[in-house]
C-alpha cells in the first residue's frame, strides 16, 4: 500500500539547530498529530515536506512521489496551511482563492462556497483587512478546496480565540469523517490533538522521541498512587516519581508493568487513574526521551 507520506532520514541544519534524522510514515485516512515545544522542528519538517525549504539529506515521498521541486505533480495531492498565512494582501479573499484555483484542475467550487459560508468569512474584504481568525480560515479553504489526499496543517489554530478554534476543528472533523484523507497536524495546543489525532509523534530538539497511537497512550499511561514503607526512587516504566513519607504518586507509561512490580514489593492501597492525552503529552515532552 502507498503511504500518504514517507519521510526517511530527513535532516536540516541551521546555525543553532539541527532537525533529524527524521523517519516518519503516515497511512492514508489517518490523522497524525505532531507535538513538540516551540523550536523543536515541527515547522521545519513541514516546510521540508512542502518544498518551502530544502533538506540537506533524506527523502520525502508523498503518495509514492518524491517531493522534487522541479517536478511538482506531488503538490496536487497536498493541501498546506502554514504557520504564516501569506496572501496577495491587496486582493480580496475571493480573488486570492481565484488565483489559487487556476493551479488545481480538481478545485471544487462547491466545496469552496460551502466553506466560505460555513466559516462566515467576509470574502470580498482585502486580505490585509481580515482578522487573524479569518486569515486562518481562508488559508484552510485554500488548502481544502482542491480535495487533497494529504493535508499538512502547521499550527493552524495558533492565535485563534476558542470560538474560532472550535469552528475550525469542527470543519476538520467533517473532513476527516468524509473520507480517506490523511492529515498531518502540528500543534502545541494539546486539546486540539486529543480531539482529532489517531496517532501522535512527539518531537524534541529536532528528534522524534515517540510515535504511537492515541489509544496506546490512553490504555497504558496511568497516574498511580500507593503506600510503600521503604524508599525507592525508580519503578519499572515510571516516568515521574513523587514521594511524601510512605505515600507515593507515580506516572507510569505501562501501568500493568508498574503494578506487577508494586505487587511484588508488597505496596498497599494501589490506585491507578486514567490520564488525559494532554497530561500524557506534557509528561512525554517533559521527559524528552
Amino acid at each position: 500500500m502507498t503511504h500518504a507520506f514517507e519521510i526517511e532520514r530527513l535532516e536540516k541544519t541551521f546555525s543553532e539547530f539541527k532537525l533529524g534524522p527524521i523517519d516518519l510514515i503516515l497511512e492514508p485516512g489517518t490523522v497524525l498529530g505532531y507535538v513538540g515545544p516551540n523550536g523543536s522542528g515541527k515547522t521545519t519538517t513541514m516546510q521540508c515536506m512542502t518544498g518551502l525549504i530544502r533538506a540537506e539529506s533524506g527523502t520525502v515521498k508523498i503518495f509514492g512521489k518524491e517531493n522534487d521541486p522541479n517536478n511538482p505533480e506531488w503538490k496536487f495531492d497536498v493541501g498546506y496551511a502554514g504557520d504564516k498565512r501569506v496572501f496577495y494582501e491587496n486582493w480580496s479573499g475571493e480573488k486570492n482563492l481565484n488565483f489559487q484555483k487556476q493551479f488545481y484542475p480538481d478545485w471544487d467550487v462547491q466545496l469552496e462556497k460551502e466553506l466560505i459560508k460555513r466559516f462566515e468569512i467576509p470574502i470580498k474584504k482585502k486580505a490585509k483587512r481580515l482578522s487573524s481568525g479569518n486569515r486562518a480560515k481562508l488559508s484552510l479553504i485554500g488548502a481544502l478546496a482542491h480535495r487533497p489526499k494529504l493535508l499538512i496543517l502547521d499550527e493552524p489554530t495558533s492565535g485563534l480565540d476558542p470560538v474560532v478554534r472550535t469552528e475550525f476543528l469542527d470543519v476538520l472533523f467533517e473532513v476527516i469523517e468524509s473520507g480517506e484523507r490523511a492529515i498531518f497536524y502540528s500543534t502545541h495546543i494539546l486539546s486540539d490533538i486529543s480531539r482529532i489525532a489517531d496517532e501522535l509523534a512527539f518531537l524534541n530538539n529536532g528528534v522524534i522521541t515517540l510515535k504511537t497511537s492515541k489509544e496506546d497512550l490512553t490504555e497504558n499511561w496511568r497516574r498511580i498512587s500507593f503506600k510503600l514503607p521503604q524508599e525507592i526512587s525508580e519503578f519499572p516504566a515510571a516516568v515521574a516519581v513523587e514521594r511524601e513519607a510512605s505515600n507515593y504518586r507515580i506516572i507510569s507509561r505501562n501501568y500493568q508493568k508498574t503494578i506487577d512490580a508494586l505487587k511484588r514489593l508488597d505496596a498497599e492501597n494501589i490506585r491507578a487513574a486514567r490520564m488525559s492525552i494532554d497530561e500524557i503529552a506534557v509528561q512525554i515532552l517533559k521527559n524528552k526521551n
Binding site: 518544498g51 518551502l52 521541486p69 522541479n70 503538490k75 501569506v86 496572501f87 496577495y88 494582501e89 488545481y104
Partner: peptide
C-alpha cells in the same frame, strides 16, 4: 513584504 516567493513556492509549479 508580502513574502511572494513563499506564496508561489507552495503552488504546484516547478521552481524553474
Amino acid at each position: 513584504k508580502e513574502i511572494r516567493e513563499r506564496v508561489h513556492a507552495a503552488l504546484p509549479v516547478s521552481v524553474g
